[in-house]
């Protein structure tokens, strides 16, 4: 084994350890102080009572949802940055989150859809339609979709869709209560049943994501170079878009929209293991899962008043982290 291999192995091992520590913290820390021994007791399947309700009912559930949603958003962000060759790409960029949210909100407000199963698929369909719409808008008549045009189309569509969601949510009190969920992401009491509906889709997204990483390395060369090298990238692009849609659509339907997780974490991953997508994508998933759970845990303890939603914490922590990254590296660093 070459030293650089060892180093990368070390990075992955380190990420797993960090993830483990964060998970333990998430189970130990909360508004109700429970001693570590009691937490372990409460984790036993036979345990009942207040501690079991808090540790197993609340903390374990939000930890699992945070892990899954974090991995999905991190993976999707890495894929999106590679696909669009745009270091500012974010699951919001291709209008994926907004599309998912708009579809679910329409289902609820217009057709009264509250069923979790239907909502998951609506979210996915919305994400897919939005991705296609952005791709068509960004392609234009004369040229293929460039990163800049895709980003502009995505930003425009996202703005339109969020205005639409806001308009619908103001229709009446019930709509407002239901749709608060689509404004700030949170992992509290999202329901394991909802997660179980989304899990197969997220797993499929992760598998596809890991399979396309080699082709993504070729995409990094740019269209012209790739063509010159004789690489057919059309299929890989479609597969990547499908993976992004699956990951974001399903994760958003569970936890709501999150920002900066998909944006900032892949940059950290690239700093640690270089530009090879075969390492960047899985490491982004691991780190984003840890980041998400950490943000949720911090949200429980940073204020003396109410808990702060994980979605708000990721934005608060993610923004300066991202600015620091942008200042540290030039923006062409994705390739």
């Amino acid at each position: 084994m070459r030293p650089s291999h060892l180093r990368r192995l070390g990075v992955f091992a380190g990420a797993v350890v960090v993830l483990g520590v964060v998970v333990v913290l998430s189970l130990m820390v909360g508004r109700q102080s429970i001693s570590p021994v009691d937490v372990i007791h409460a984790l036993m399947p036979s345990a009942t009572g207040d501690n079991a309700d808090i540790v197993r009912g609340l903390r374990l559930e939000r930890t699992i949802i945070g892990l899954v949603a974090g991995a999905a958003f991190g993976g999707a962000g890495a894929l999106m940055q590679a696909l669009t060759r745009n270091p500012l790409a974010d699951p919001g960029l291709l209008g994926v989150n907004a599309g998912a949210a708009a579809a679910v909100v329409t289902g609820f407000a217009v057709f009264g859809v509250t069923n979790g199963f239907a909502q998951t698929w609506l979210g996915l369909a919305g994400a897919a339609i939005a991705s296609v719409a952005v791709y068509l808008l960004g392609s234009g008549s004369r040229s293929a979709a460039t990163p800049a045009r895709l980003a502009l189309a995505g930003a425009a569509l996202t703005a339109v869709l969020f205005s639409y969601i806001t308009a619908l949510s103001m229709r009446d009190q019930d709509s407002y209560n239901e749709m608060r969920f689509w404004v700030v992401g949170s992992v509290v009491n999202r329901g394991m049943d909802r997660l179980l509906l989304a899990l197969p889709l997220i797993l499929a997204g992760i598998v596809i994501a890991l399979l396309v990483t080699r082709a993504l390395n070729a995409i990094a060369f740019g269209d012209d170079t790739s063509k010159a090298l004789g690489l057919g990238l059309g299929k890989a692009r479609v597969a990547t878009a499908i993976a992004i849609t699956l990951l974001c659509g399903a994760a958003t339907s569970v936890a709501g929209p999150f920002v900066f997780v998909g944006l900032a974490v892949p940059h950290v991953a690239r700093i640690l293991v270089g530009a090879d997508q075969r390492r960047v994508v899985p490491l982004s998933m691991l780190l984003a899962a840890a980041f998400m759970v950490l943000c949720d845990t911090l949200g429980r303890i940073v204020s003396s008043g109410a808990e702060i939603e994980a979605g708000a914490v990721t934005a608060i922590l993610g923004a300066p982290l991202f600015i620091a990254l942008v200042r540290r590296r030039t923006l062409t660093a994705t390739s």
Binding site: G30, R31, Q32, L58, V188, G305, A306
Partner: peptide, 12 residues
């Protein structure tokens, strides 16, 4: 007062 769901046990 906005409480965490962990604090609901206050109302046992």
């Amino acid at each position: 007062a906005q409480l965490s769901w962990e604090q609901a046990t206050q109302f046992n």
